[in-house]
Design a binder for these strands. Structure first.
Lengths: 197, 197
DNA sequence: ACTATTATTAGACCCGATCTAATAAATCGG
DNA sequence: CCGATTTATTAGATCGGGTCTAATAATAGT
């Protein structure tokens, strides 16, 4: 890659996040202003918004990449299935994929945001943005079920996706809450999904 | 009630809400400011915040009373049960109570907020506050299950509550989306809860 | 009339978010 | 080495939601 023209970047999401998490731990999410974060990282408020659309987006940075990985896995599966039509997809396969994905998720991979979720005051914009992520998961599942072709009933699809989302989210939060000594996340999720099979 | 001392009220939640919904329908939730709402109703911005803690709270006014009624029903049941110890409560009874409650809920009772939910731009604070309501439902169900004594396993309780919440919310939204010609809400909810029994 | 009480209000403040225009730091072509 | 171009950073204005304080208005009781 030839060197790009224009002024080179000095700021980065990582630098801003580092400063932010430090400040969050001291004073909490709410009382840490974007101004403070930017200044601590050595930049201006305006630069912050060049990297993040909102204060909450910074908070969810790692969580979003995790969600992105899951999305890729699901979409990859669907495309792979395009060739060999109509194999066993549908709800059962979706749950199976979630379990596979959960194997790659260990205690060391918990996003800071989720790790410290309960400690933070439930700020409005955090609830909003967190809810947005949950809805995104729900949409992903619904899309998968729809595109996978099985289950023509849209209502049943919606219910299936909603239940799966709810169980996944409570499993994640419960698992994190369990602290050290929690077993593998896969085991936890298996137990949570038990009643569905 | 003897007449209370002090300056009598002229403003009311209803007056403010009336003005607000009119403006929402014209320009949408986002681009209607609290200032506009208050002035249209004939009051000042400051008065608005004497009645509502946030712009979103006005939006959910009727929905909140609905949730309140459900809470009362659940708590009433628990207290009634105090006397005759250990009858059949638990998950099955909770689902039954939801169905009973749903019988009292007809097309005419849909809160404006829910009726127009899909039409409104998904404003951040609306998502946040909506999510807050969903979490409240979840908490209510969890509390009921806990206090009802059955099911000693906290994890299973959490899962049960989450699934119930998810199914209830998707049932409500789906039912509203179905438009005129949707059957009774009770029928819809029965169908949604079917897989659980 | 005076006091206590409550409702309404103006106005300041903070913060998140959006936008525009200015400036800084680099590459590239001469 | 110089200017044009490109991109990053920034200052600063503006808006709206939310909080707060202090002032004023309208009632009841004495």
């Amino acid at each position: 890659m030839p060197p790009a023209p224009g002024r080179p970047r000095k700021a980065s999401p990582e630098l801003l996040q580092e400063a932010a998490f430090e400040l969050f731990q001291l004073g909490g999410y709410r009382s840490t202003s974007v101004e403070e974060i930017a200044k601590t990282a050595g930049f201006s408020r305006a630069t912050f918004f060049n990297f993040f659309a909102s204060k909450a987006d910074l908070y969810w940075l790692e969580t979003d990449t995790l969600i992105g990985r899951l999305r890729d896995a699901l979409e990859g599966e669907l495309e792979r299935r395009e060739g060999s039509a109509g194999e066993g997809a549908g709800p059962a396969r979706l749950r199976e994929m979630l379990l596979e994905f959960s194997s790659t998720f260990g205690s060391a991979d918990i996003p800071w945001a989720l790790q410290n979720f309960r400690l933070l005051e439930a700020a409005d914009d955090l609830i909003a943005s967190g809810a947005g992520r949950v809805l995104e998961l729900n949409r992903m599942f619904q899309t998968y079920l729809q595109r996978s072709g099985q289950q023509p009933d849209a209502v049943a699809r919606g219910a299936e996706a909603a239940v799966l989302t709810a169980l996944l989210v409570t499993a994640v939060l419960g698992w994190i809450d369990a602290g050290v000594g929690r077993g593998s996340f896969r085991a936890r999720l298996e137990r949570a999904l038990e009643p569905l099979s």
